[in-house]
Amino acid sequence: MAAGAADKVSVLLPTYNERENLPLVVWLLARSFETSGYNFEIIVIDDGSPDGTQEVAEQLVKIYGSDKILLRPRAKKLGLGTAYIHGMKHATGNFIVIMDADLSHHPKFIAEFIRKQKEGNFDIVSGTRYKGNGGVYGWDLKRKLISRGANFLTQVLLRPGASDLTGSFRLYKKEVLQKLMEKCVSKGYVFQMEMIVRARQLGYTIGEVPISFVDRVYGESKLGGNEIVSFLKGLLTLFATT
C-alpha cells in the first residue's frame, strides 16, 4: 500500500513494569508500519519502572535506531495524562497514536485508523470494542456485563457520539490532541472519556474502527470496586459539568 510521504505517526507508549511486553509491542509496531509504509516513531514514556523496562528499552533503541525509538522516561509514576503531555512534547509526527503497551491493543489496527482518518479527514479515530467485528478476549460474563452496563449508562447520560469511551486506542491529529490535553483534567478511565466529550464540545469529528481487545497476556488486569466507584464519580462529574 502506498502511503502519504508527508504523514508521520508518533506512537506514545506510557509504560510501568512492561519489561516483558515492551519489546513485543515495539516489534509488532515496527512490523506493521513497515508493511503499511508509514513513517513512524515510538516514544516510550517509562515512569521509573523497577522491573528494568528502561534497560530493555535501551536495547530496543540499539536494534531499531534512536530515530525510531525515543526514550523519554520520568522519575516516578505520575499518571497517564501527564505522560501524554510529556511524550507529545517530543513527538514530530502529524498524527499521534495512543495505545496501551500491554499487548491488549494490536498495532495492526493503526493502518486501519489511518485509512479511516483519510476517508473523512477525521480529527480523531477511536478504536471501538462495541461495534462491528470489535470485541474482547479474556473477559468473563461479569466483566462483560459491567462493561456493557457502564457503556449504556454513559451513552444515555452523555450522548457522546462515539461508542467506546473508555478505550484508550486512538489516533489524533497532533494539534487536536494538544488542544484536548489543555482541557482535560480527569484521571484513569474517566480521562479517556473526557477526551471524547471535550472533543465533541470543541466540534472535532470522530471516526471509529472496530478493534479486538485481548486482555493482558502478561501481568495482572485490573478492575476492582474502587475502579467502578471512580468511574461513576467521573461519569457524574462530566454529566454535571459538560
Binding site: H106, Y130, N133, G134, G135, V136, Y137, L141, K144, L145, S147, R148, G149, N151, F152, S212, F213, V214
Partner: peptide
C-alpha cells in the same frame, strides 16, 4: 444491555 452482552464478540482468533 442484555442483547449487547449476549452479542459481545469473543475474539478467540485475535
Amino acid at each position: 444491555v442484555g442483547y449487547r452482552l449476549a452479542t459481545f464478540n469473543d475474539c478467540e482468533e485475535a
